[in-house]
Design a protein around this nucleic acid. Structure first.
Length: 648
RNA sequence: GCUGAUGUGGCACAGUCGGUAGCGCAACGCCUUGGUAAGGCGUAGGUCGUCGGUUCAAGUCCGAUCAUCAGCUCCA
């Protein structure tokens, strides 16, 4: 007897070893039809897996992440099979499942055109209809390599060779005439992958390195039900409507001009206002948290960057003024980061342990010469302004200060409403290639990372680990955010630096009179204002929370005779620091309301005979709907309250 | 930087086989003073991203370049 502990805690017994598929059929054919894979003692396995001993047995349908991945992985094999049928000369690279579907990389003469993708889709439909069974088999590494060479798949040979050293058998999956090197798991047949769509064909480097050949990547997604596919595609379309790069331009937050340059956005009055509001709030809040405000130059001589190490590590990313190679002449560079400048504040005089922690904050404009293909709206630009800061610390202050930095960042992200969509990434160095970009010794890195890991675990922060994502001088905690296309960027970063203090000769006199080396935390609280603004536009679909709205209230007179009353109301609002305007155009109320809605005004009020007579206003809030008639005083109090409370 | 796509008045688009540009919205003017998602009439506005080439003739074909978009790589 073999005992299976099911997910609900119940025990199921089977007489003898059988495949997971057979066991699930025994539980119910409905479940079998929905099953994509199983988890045996927590480990994701194929339905073909033979169960021959007691275990925890969990069935994963498409509703689980594991199920989706299995489903999509089979989808990628169907895609590859269709491509091989239509383009036998195409070479296969890799084809994994991703967060929202799957892709497959092919080496082709020419990337697929949209018409070709349609033909591939048609062939995929045929493969699904055929309901081809997938079979798994294993070969020894030598046999596997021989087979892949015979198949004429050089990329697969390369992948296989890496596994060959382990001496373990190499797993393959076969569906009809199509065979692929693959660890699985997979569905039993191609039949369930009924609803799918090829999304796009783009370039991608083999093995993710720009030194390698660029392959053609086909992105796709798939669902068991057509309705779910439709919903996904619709959701993707709707997400694009929130794209800050489109919406931000339409709503006149920013623009760009060809002859100013890529990645150099012009902040229009609305965008500039939001940035100003954020910036003032951040500076004031940081002051309350003990930060000292600094203002340092945007340009420095090359010598500064040589000390900091940026000249060696970051020269390509800097805007250099002068010939960087001519040592006989002065050479300047626009600053790509604030660190070495702000350290000078600390270095201004000899420091005592009593001065620590020293928290320095600066609204800092930085310049980075990104590659031309990198720019994206306000998210990736060449000039940006960041809520920058550096904390100089005694070692024993590191944990508490790191925690405070994280809490400050979380408070700010929460206040603007972005925190709920953030994820945390512990960005570490890559011990495999320490010479690549990292300064310092392995010991220093292990120490700093151990400290950060301890702090994060203490704080109960859930994070993923990003290998080779660290800064050259230390590990980072990155707070990540995804844009409407699902592309992730860093919104906020908090970094532990155990190297630059030494380079700049920073020290403090400790209690015992000896000179000690401080630790440094590099951090931002709200990230860069451009990027944060971009995410706010996307998050709120252009409708900023009241306290951040460039225009908070629009006053709509019904007829010209009401304008005088509106002027008085406007004066009261302005006196209370509320940003308001009067729409006195010769248009009807319906038109003015429509425009106020389209411009995403948080509040608009209409004024006609009724309101003038009763000294009231008729109020509509974008979020709360029609609030009916209110006295001017009530309106004012409500606005002041909501603004003070930063209501979202 | 790499792969692909795109680039026509402020915005969103049309422009078939090469024969010197069309519509809607917006803008402006006039009329309308109208009560919660587009009132009416009229006017003006582009040489088709830029440069070069092919041609009797190019928005339309070719090349280069710039910019934009998606993806890759890189990064806040």
């Amino acid at each position: 007897m073999i005992k299976l502990t099911l997910k609900d805690g119940s025990i199921r017994e089977i007489e003898a070893a059988q495949s997971a598929a057979e066991i699930i059929k025994g539980i119910g054919m409905g479940l079998y039809k929905a099953a994509c894979c199983v988890k045996i003692n927590g480990e994701v396995k194929d339905l073909r897996t033979i169960i021959d001993s007691d275990c925890e047995f969990e069935v994963c349908t498409f509703d689980t992440i594991e199920g989706k991945k299995t489903f999509w992985h089979t989808g990628s094999h169907i895609l590859a099979q269709a491509v091989k049928r239509l383009y036998p000369q195409a070479k296969l690279a890799i084809g994994p499942a991703i967060d929202n579907g799957f892709y497959y990389d092919f080496d082709l003469e020419k990337p697929f055109t949209p018409e070709e993708l349609e033909k591939i889709e048609a062939e995929m439909k045929a493969i699904v209809k055929e309901g081809i069974a997938l079979e798994q088999f294993e070969l020894s590494p030598a046999e596997a390599i021989a087979k892949l060479e015979e198949m004429g798949e050089p990329y697969k040979v390369e992948l296989c060779q890496e596994h060959a050293d382990k001496g373990e058998p190499i797993s393959f999956y076969k569906q009809g005439e199509f065979v692929d090197l693959c660890a699985g798991p997979h569905l039993m047949t191609t039949a369930p992958v009924k609803a799918f769509k090829l999304i796009s064909c783009t370039g991608a480097y083999w093995r993710g390195s720009e030194k390698n050949k660029m392959l053609s990547r086909v992105y796709a997604t798939a669902y068991p039900k057509a309705a779910d596919l439709e919903a996904d595609l619709k959701q993707r379309e709707e997400a694009k409507l929130r794209d800050h790069n489109k919406l931000g331009r339409e709503l006149e937050y920013f623009t760009t001009v060809d002859f100013i340059g890529q990645g150099l956005p012009i902040m229009l009055p609305k965008g500039a206002r939001v940035v100003q509001l954020l910036q003032r709030w951040v500076e004031d809040t940081e002051q309350k948290h003990g930060y000292l405000l600094t203002k340092t130059p945007l340009v420095a001589k090359r010598e500064l960057y040589k000390i900091s190490g940026h000249w060696d590590h970051y020269l390509d990313g800097m805007f250099v003024l002068g010939d960087p190679n001519d040592e006989t002449k002065e050479c300047f560079a626009l600053r790509p980061m604030t660190c070495p400048f702000q350290y000078q504040v600390y270095l201004n005089r000899q420091r005592s342990y009593r001065d620590l922690p020293m928290r320095l904050g600066e609204t800092s404009t930085l310049f980075r010469n990104e590659d031309s293909g990198e720019m994206h709206g306000l998210i990736r630009v060449r000039q940006f302004t960041i809520s920058e800061g550096h904390l100089v610390l005694r070692p024993d202050q590191l944990e508490e200060e790191f925690r405070d930095c994280l809490e400050l960042a979380k408070y700010m992200l929460d206040t603007v409403g972005l925190l709920e969509d953030c994820t945390f990434r512990f960005s570490q160095w890559d011990p495999a290639n320490p010479k690549n970009k990292y300064e310092g010794t392995a010991e220093q890195w292990e120490t700093a990372q151990a400290v950060m890991a301890k702090i994060l675990d203490h704080l109960g922060v859930e994070y993923t680990i990003g290998i080779d994502e660290a800064a050259f001088y230390g590990p980072k905690l990155d707070i990540q955010y995804k844009n409407v296309y699902g592309k992730e960027d860093t919104l906020v970063t908090i970094q532990i630096d155990m190297l630059l203090a030494e380079r700049f000769g920073m020290e403090y006199v400790d209690e015992d009179g000896t000179k000690k080396r401080p630790y440094i935390i590099h951090r931002t609280s709200l990230g860069c204002y451009e990027r944060t603004l971009a995410y706010l536009i996307e998050k709120y679909n252009g409708a900023m929370p009241l306290w951040l709205a460039p225009e908070q209230v629009r006053i709509i007179p019904v007829a010209d005779r009401h304008i005088e009353y509106c002027d008085k109301l406007l004066a009261k609002l302005e006196a209370a620091g509320i940003r308001a305007t009067i729409d006195d155009r010769a248009e009807k109320v319906g038109k003015k309301v429509r425009d106020a809605r389209l411009e995403r005004l948080p509040v608009w009020v209409t004024v006609g005979d009724k309101e003038v007579e009763s000294e009231t206003v008729s109020v509509t809030s974008r979020r709360e709907g029609d609030l009916g008639s209110m006295t001017q005083c009530d309106l004012l109090n409500k606005l002041i309250d909501d603004i003070a409370n930063k209501v979202r």
